[in-house]
Nucleic acid binder design. Structure first.
Lengths: 184, 184
DNA sequence: TGTACATCAGTGAACGCGCGTTCACTGATGTAC
DNA sequence: TGTACATCAGTGAACGCGCGTTCACTGATGTAC
């Protein structure tokens, strides 16, 4: 028979996710590089020493954020893109950008900040995730790369817009992506 | 008669520039948000308390970096751009990006990192500087904005490239900028 | 089923250390007359 | 020109505080038989 995940394992996973969420939220407010282990533990309401039951150090939790949060976000963003249909793809992507910003602003801030940030151990894996997205967008590597640049700029821009300005940003983004993806 | 700048003033300015350079260099290595006042003073070889003779706090020195270093860099980048000639402008800009990365990599890292970063007091003035650059690039606001996004992506990308790969990046960037600026 | 043992997430105390900031002081330079 | 005073960049001592990390321990849960 299949054994259920034990209560112990479930509780541990729950605490782990709380830590990841706390790190994400604090990153969005003052940057991952400035986070402290005690600060994250405090936000997750556990003792500082308990942090070590889940992650080796702050580098470890940073890598986990990229793999477990940014990765899925970008895969979802790439869903529904048809490399053969520039207009449809632009529409899907522009909407996806705005949806991501509304649903997970802290995660989006983490992505755009750390992909350009000073910490190589975050920048490099984030670049890897973005390359994976690029291959899903267009057959030409240059075009795909350019589209990703436009997407990232749209994400960063939308983050700082008031909700009332976001519709206009979605339209702008759609036009920009159409131009890039339909370019021959 | 005009009075010379006194020795005192000259020496103070020299120390001030050393502090700014130290802050820039340390920002590039682990992010402005994580900098400490004592850390910057140490790198500038002055006592921690002397920092206060030049800046009120870390926020103050951050703003000075944007105004006194990033501003001039972007103005130089915009020099020689002719809004009426997409090809010529793309060439000048692509070359300018690569030159900036080679001549002042730490400043470029500061720019791309903090313009997307979590610290609003840096992000906002950096956005202002970038808007000023945009107006110099093209008559259409949307096109200019897109060109700036491509420029920033090129800066971030070139920073992480080996010198041998940078010529190819300049060509790619030139094609991308030409497409964006010549779009009708 | 009951019992003895193993596992391990969470903890509090403790450590040495670097932090930002204040304070009073020094001494070279600048100003007034 | 000389003299008395003002300015102020730089400093070292001191402060209370939060940091990352270690350690030994607790107690609930899981496993073996």
């Amino acid at each position: 028979v299949l054994r259920d995940r034990s209560q112990k394992q479930e509780e541990k996973e729950r605490v782990r996710l709380t830590l990841l969420g706390a790190a994400l939220s604090l990153s969005a407010s003052h940057g991952f590089a400035s986070l402290g282990l005690r600060e994250v533990a405090r936000a997750a309401q556990i003792a500082p020493t308990s942090f070590y039951r889940h992650f080796a150090d702050m580098v470890d939790i940073g890598r986990a954020l990229v793999e477990e949060y940014v990765g899925p976000l970008l895969r979802e963003l790439g869903h529904g893109v048809d490399p053969g249909d520039a207009h449809a793809s632009a529409l899907v992507l522009a909407q996806g950008v705005l949806t991501a910003v509304e649903a997970q602003p802290e995660l989006v801030r983490f992505l755009v900040a750390e992909r350009a940030g000073a910490l190589e151990f975050l920048r490099k894996p984030l670049d890897g995730e973005l390359r994976a997205l690029a291959t899903a967008l267009h057959g030409s590597a240059d075009t795909a790369q350019l589209a990703v640049a436009v997407l990232l700029d749209g994400l960063a821009r939308a983050l700082d817009l008031a909700p009332s300005e976001r519709n206009a940003e979605r339209e702008r983004l759609m036009r920009a992506l159409t131009m890039v993806l339909a370019h021959d």
